[in-house]
């Protein structure tokens, strides 16, 4: 991965009394696909708007290619944006929408035509140049919005929930295409979403945010497998979260039972949160299991069943391909590698 391209240093931003970003620090590498992920209202769009130049930070520095760009206007930045709901110009057709930026740069006409056609090919909209925006489907508008941004060959493309308005099937298709596009173009993508699946599928790096703060930065694998705290574990995928105590290195106690694990470096008897993913539980005969319970409900989810098991008055969620009847007595086991121990959040 290349050098640092954008760096946000100690950025704070408030709207009135509402603190949207609170001493924010992170950097973006060249050619990286980075995703800002978090629930709505967590400040991810504001962060994107700061990079794009539509807002100025109250405090801190935004550094682009080694230069502070806090006060640069959006049109002076080598950054383009693909907006939520696309923001295509309704008074222009497809060609003029895409050519908008090039015309402002006063490029020669033949070059403009060439570049627009190339880009149309890239987003698979060949032959659509004369169509009016209002005659396009959501997916097609999405492609025009991307084309309009990348035709300017920016160093960075900012995408604000670009797939939010599309239906599931199209969304999955576009996820794949966007990733592909990013690879071929070699542009840095900064992607904002609240959809964890989207983030996991496409990103090189994920930044998890909540209430204006960064909770964890890492690769999708890191974040899924080693969530740093309860919030991240809950937000990324479904989780069973238990309160427990770290007895010693590699030994954790929760639900009044002791389990081997792979975590170390905690204080003796430190209070911790333990995360177990629903797909990491296995059914074993009750006689051999530490955890025993009764099947409470069962839902068919397509690829797997979602089974809720009642254990000592608490519900465990399990994803499995094995079928069990409601009311069955079952035993549950879990491998040491699947037990994720996290420091308890002070709250």
């Amino acid at each position: 991965m290349g050098k640092k391209l954008i760096e946000l240093k100690n950025i704070s931003k408030s709207f009135g009394d509402l603190v949207v970003l609170d001493h924010f620090n992170f950097y973006i590498n060249e050619n990286e696909f980075i995703t800002l992920l978090g629930p709505s209202g967590c400040g991810k769009t504001t962060c994107l708007r700061l990079i794009g130049g539509f807002e100025t930070p109250d405090d801190g520095e935004i550094i682009f290619d080694g230069k502070v760009i806090n006060d640069l206007e959006p049109n002076q930045r080598e950054i383009n944006t693909c907006f939520q709901k696309y923001a295509l110009f309704p008074h222009l057709n497809v060609f003029d929408n895409i050519a908008f930026g090039l015309k402002l740069k006063k490029l020669p006409k033949t070059e403009i035509v060439d570049r627009v056609h190339q880009t149309l090919k890239l987003v698979k909209l060949d032959g659509f140049q004369d169509r009016h925006i209002s005659t396009l489907s959501g997916g097609q508008q999405q492609r025009v919005a991307i084309a309009r941004a990348i035709v300017n060959r920016p160093k960075v493309l900012l995408l604000d929930e670009p797939l939010g308005a599309l239906d599931l099937k199209l969304r999955q298709e576009m996820q794949y295409e966007l990733k592909e596009m990013q690879r071929t173009l070699g542009i840095t993508f900064v992607y904002v979403t609240h959809d964890q699946e989207e983030a996991l599928t496409m990103s090189d790096t994920i930044v998890i945010m909540n209430e204006g703060k960064i909770l964890q930065i890492g690769t999708p694998e890191d974040i899924y497998n080693e969530p740093k705290n309860r919030f991240v574990a809950n937000f990324i995928g479904e989780s069973n979260i238990f309160e427990g105590i770290m007895i010693e290195d590699y030994l954790v106690k929760f639900v009044d039972r002791e389990f081997k694990c792979v975590d170390k470096g905690f204080h003796l008897n430190e209070a911790v949160d333990v995360v177990i993913r629903p797909e990491d539980f296995d059914f074993v005969p009750p006689s051999k299991a530490k955890i025993k319970g009764i099947v409470d409900s069962l839902t068919f989810k397509g690829v797997h069943y979602e089974i809720n098991v009642m254990v000592d008055g608490r519900e465990y969620t399990i994803h499995t391909t094995k079928y069990r009847e409601v009311g069955d007595r079952v035993g549950l086991s879990v491998e040491p590698e699947s037990i994720h121990v996290m420091r308890r959040q002070r709250s």
């Binding site: 049109n75 383009n80 709901k85 923001a87 908008f100 930026g101 402002l104 740069k105 309009r148």
Partner: peptide
């Protein structure tokens, strides 16, 4: 109007008045 329309203009190289 889509509130982002004006910003899309800025983003693509317009000055504020443009």
């Amino acid at each position: 109007l889509d509130p982002n329309l004006y910003e899309a203009g800025l983003d693509l190289g317009c000055s504020r008045i443009e």
